[in-house]
């Protein structure tokens, strides 16, 4: 049930002839004297949706920042084999407030040539967000949704989603889940951190647990259910508190 990095890499690679890998090699990160990440190692082939779970303050956002390349101050390395592009949906803002929705989309479209702009625009209009709104005018949930669309429709091989479900109502959450399903394919990897275990219960192929600065081995969702008879949420709760 608990597959090591090596096993999952070999198995998946054989099944799908996937050569592209994403992961880290011995990443250590500290904020001052506090060691947040202690030798984080993983290696996943592209193709699927993977969850990263951990308690508050376990370092999930830190890890995602390092994986996305936004934080360069760490020991160790991020490994990207046979691809380059990583898109990141962050928790905090990061957009200049004077920009309008269409400006942001144009900006990302310029620098991410594979962006699917039509889908972004149609999803926004379905949600009632107008192109000419400034970012200031959007509620936090709408900003979150915009960030999600820009990430998932960026065309990047690896998309990192930090708490994509927070701040969103029931309908938006469903939309996000369905979008993730429709956009995933054998050449893309979606990494999601979330506390909303129920939302991702059936969505993810497998998951990793970040505890005490260390990353667990890769758990395959269906195997967890089969061998333990527990849901992913139950299993995770026991693992993280055990």
């Amino acid at each position: 049930m608990e597959q090591t990095t090596q096993q999952i890499t070999q198995e998946r690679a054989q099944q799908t002839a996937q050569t592209k890998l994403f992961g880290t090699l011995n990443v250590w990160k500290n904020y001052g004297s506090k060691q947040v990440l202690k030798g984080v190692n993983f290696s996943l082939p592209l193709g699927g949706i993977v969850g990263i779970f951990g308690l508050n303050g376990s370092g999930k956002t830190t890890l995602l920042k390092i994986l996305s390349g936004l934080d360069g101050r760490y020991r160790g390395s991020v490994m990207k084999k046979d691809f380059d592009d990583v898109a990141y949906m962050s928790v905090e803002g990061g957009y200049p407030m004077d920009m309008r929705v269409k400006d942001i989309i144009r900006f990302f479209g310029k620098f991410c040539p594979q962006q699917n702009t039509e889908k972004i625009l149609s999803s926004l209009s379905d949600a009632g967000i107008k192109e000419k709104n400034t970012l200031l005018a959007l509620s936090s949930g709408m900003k979150q949704y915009l960030k999600f669309l820009l990430t998932v429709y960026s065309g990047a091989s690896v998309c990192l989603f930090d708490e994509p479900f927070s701040n969103l109502d029931v309908n938006m959450r469903e939309k996000i889940a369905k979008t993730l399903i429709l956009e995933s394919n054998g050449n893309r990897l979606f990494l999601i951190t979330t506390h909303e275990l129920k939302e991702v219960e059936t969505l993810i192929d497998g998951f990793l647990i970040l505890k005490d600065g260390r990353l667990s081995a890769y758990y395959v969702g269906e195997e967890v259910r089969e061998t333990t008879g527990k849901s992913i949420a139950q299993f995770y709760k026991e693992k993280v508190n055990g």
Binding site: G48, I181, S184, T202, I204, E222
Partner: peptide, 17 residues
């Protein structure tokens, strides 16, 4: 596969299986 997965809200690899 993908549309059925979206309909059930489950992972496409699961539906493939």
């Amino acid at each position: 596969i993908r549309e059925f997965a979206a309909f059930c809200s489950v992972n496409p690899n699961t539906v493939a299986k």
